[in-house]
């Protein structure tokens, strides 16, 4: 045993200038962490299944009821958005994934090993954002594309389908993946800010799902003024191809949505840097 250590020690001393901690290495470390948890796989699987399964289901229901639909409704019908409806359920799985990427480390004590290895701390936050952001965008991008193409094929039976060349369709498919990517990052930011799984999940879905309901309770005209700036409303405009006049312009709306994530990440970064681990 001591011989092994002795030999190894000598090698170490021989290479005095050994690799240091870099952002790229921390990203690699976070990638290993992402791949090595079964729960991460199931979150991705669930999110993809929601997007594709519900997208196909909604497309099928619309297709079968197309002839009973009143004409004014037909005029505003958005086949792209219909096939992407599953995104609203996938956001739950992806939000929880982002939160657990951080709070899972705090609740198990893993965070102390992580921060001992990367004592400057912030590279861990950036690493998680990059790795989870890229993974969510890739998996959900593919899922959105699949559900879009399959959904349109279904709705093609009554010839009211969209295609990728339909104005706004490609943006909507990308937008669904972008929305979920930012949801995940918002979860990561809140995870570092609050450290507790329950607290961060409650805050995340309070912001996304409960806040709009509370705003609706305000007297007119407040709801109309405020709603378009709320995270869920602003984050999902990209997914519409039929313009909704009560909402902000697509990319402006997405920018507003991103600001929520930026705020949560900035607050999380400040806490990560300052608080005892």
């Amino acid at each position: 045993m001591s011989t092994t250590m002795q030999e190894a020690r000598t090698t170490t001393t021989a290479n005095a200038h050994l690799p240091q901690v870099t952002q790229a290495r921390v990203i690699e470390s976070e990638w290993i962490k992402l791949r090595s948890l079964r729960s991460t796989f199931w979150s991705f699987f669930a999110a993809a299944a929601f997007v594709i399964g519900l997208g196909l289901l909604f497309s099928l229901v619309r297709e079968q009821n197309w002839n009973q639909m009143p004409p004014p409704e037909k005029l505003l019908f958005d086949p792209t958005q219909t096939s992407l409806r599953g995104t609203y359920l996938a956001e739950l799985a992806i939000g929880v994934l982002g939160v657990l990427a951080v709070t899972g480390e705090y609740s198990t004590g893993m965070i102390r090993a992580t921060l001992s290895a990367v004592p400057r701390r912030l590279p861990v936050l950036w690493g998680k954002l990059v790795v989870f952001g890229a993974a969510v965008f890739a998996v959900m991008g593919v899922s959105s594309l699949i559900t879009f193409l399959a959904g349109q094929a279904i709705m093609g039976g009554t010839h009211h389908q969209a295609s990728l060349s339909t104005p706004g369709a490609l943006r909507a498919v990308t937008g669904a993946a972008l929305f979920l990517t930012v949801i995940c990052m918002l979860g990561i930011g809140l995870g570092f800010l609050l450290r507790s799984t329950a607290g961060a999940i409650a805050t995340l879905f309070g912001l996304i799902l409960v806040l709009p309901i509370l705003v609706q309770a305000l007297p007119s005209p407040w709801p109309e003024h405020i709603t378009k700036f709320l995270p869920l409303a602003a984050g999902t405009v990209l997914m519409n191809t039929v313009k909704d006049p009560t909402m902000l312009a697509p990319w402006t709306a997405f920018g507003v949505f991103c600001l929520y994530a930026v705020a949560a990440i900035a607050a999380g970064a400040a806490m990560l840097k300052r608080r005892d681990a």
């Binding site: 240091q20 901690v21 976070e30 290993i32 090595s36 948890l37 004590g109 893993m110 102390r112 090993a113």
Partner: peptide, 24 residues
Amino acid sequence: LEARAIHTGRSARSHLLALAATTG
């Protein structure tokens, strides 16, 4: 610092690989 500075869902090997990666 404490034996349980590890994510319970990860294997020992993956845990060590993730730590090792930070410093190459």
